[in-house]
Computed example of a mutant assay.
Amino acid sequence: MTRTVYVNGDYLPEAEATVSIFDRGFLMADGVYEVTSVLGGKLIDFEGHAVRLQRSLDELDMVNPISKEDLLQVHRELVRVNEIDEGMVYLQITRGAPGDRDFVFPDPETTQPTIVLFTQNKPGLANSPAAKTGMKVISIDDIRWGRRDIKTVQLLYPSMGKMMAKKAGADDAWMIEDGFVTEGTSNNAYIVKGNKIITRALSNDILHGITRAAVLRFAQEAQMEVEERNFTIEEAKEADEAFITSASTFVMPVVEIDGVSLGEGAPGRVALRLREIYLEESLKTAV
């Protein structure tokens, strides 16, 4: 079945969807994006994604072309027409195509942004086999720009990091800067030591994960100890367990780092419990 996608106010078959070759998202990665998970045909953490989207646009001095209410309606309509039970809705807003290629962008108030949304069908998202076996990560240098808190479409290096991991026989990579882990290529990183959950504090250095915020809140409500601080890859290798969080993986256990097995080499108790709590609680507020 051909997907229906959304482009600048229109619902179209994906084969008929087009964007200008002069769009700054294409020419300069001048855009932001969000990915919202769908479980049981409902959107997970939509409010958080909408708030972060607005923050990213504000940080780049871009105008939001759609209200939060209308954005929710577009998400729901795409989920409906594409019959998504488990999957994701991808949203991208770029500065648009104001004219010929130029490093200097025009007045935001006179430029019409480009907005694109599409769905991805992912049956079994909630019951991913990987959650039962855990994932392996390698460490790589973090050479990205300094504003990782803005969710831009500049994803070349994260993509390269995933390919480095694949070549090494791993599933993903954790990035290292000044000796400390920043985050995964498309996720936030955590270790567990003595029942304490440790993850890097929010700053411009990492993405302010929507799933991260929910998981840490649920952890504290479950009387788990959380410490937000930097940690080294050496400390991670000596941890009892580790995990990542993201909108597409929820809570995913990590069982190996740079070839070193963590704990018993199997998903840890804390990660598995947090995944269970996250899925249960998020479904209660899904829209």
Rank of each mutant, 00 (worst) to 15 (best):
P123M: 08
D141I: 02
E225K: 15
Q112I: 13
E235Q: 13
Y33D: 01
Q112H: 12
I233Q: 12
F103H: 15
E59D: 14
I206V: 12
I44F: 02
R24D: 00
T110E: 15
G259A: 12
Q92H: 05
T199L: 03
S186P: 00
F105S: 13
I191L: 11
S159E: 00
V287R: 14
T285H: 12
N188D: 09
E221L: 13
L216W: 04
V226D: 06
S261Q: 15
A271L: 09
K196L: 01
E225M: 12
V226N: 04
G124N: 01
D149A: 10
T18E: 08
T211F: 01
F118I: 03
D100S: 15
K122T: 10
P129V: 03
A97N: 08
P253N: 10
L155N: 04
D149N: 14
Q92W: 02
G184K: 09
Q54R: 15
M252H: 08
P98E: 12
K68E: 15
H208K: 13
K42P: 07
E238V: 06
L60H: 06
K42M: 11
D171M: 00
T133S: 15
D102F: 10
L72H: 09
I140Y: 05
M1A: 13
A219S: 05
I277P: 01
T110A: 12
G194V: 03
R76N: 13
R275D: 06
E69Y: 01
V192F: 03
M1G: 11
F231G: 11
P129S: 01
M62Q: 10
N127S: 15
A170W: 01
I143P: 00
T249E: 13
T110K: 15
A213W: 00
A242R: 07
Q73N: 13
K122L: 15
Q54I: 01
N195D: 15
M163Y: 10
V51Y: 09
A170V: 02
A97D: 08
V215A: 06
V215S: 07
A201E: 13
K122W: 14
M88G: 02
A213N: 09
I21A: 05
T110N: 12
D100C: 08
G169S: 06
A15M: 04
M163A: 14
A201M: 04
A17L: 01
A201K: 12
M28I: 03
T111L: 05
S203H: 03
R144Y: 03
D45E: 11
A214L: 11
V287H: 14
K132F: 00
T119S: 04
I21M: 12
M62Y: 04
R3E: 11
P65A: 08
K68T: 13
L274F: 05
Y278D: 08
W145P: 04
L71V: 06
V81M: 04
G161S: 07
S20Y: 02
F250W: 11
E276I: 06
A97Y: 02
Y33T: 05
K151V: 01
G87V: 04
Y278M: 10
V254H: 06
E59S: 14
S67Q: 06
L216T: 07
A266T: 14
V79R: 05
R95C: 10
A130Y: 03
A50F: 04
A201T: 02
A236P: 08
D141W: 05
N127F: 01
V35P: 06
E86A: 06
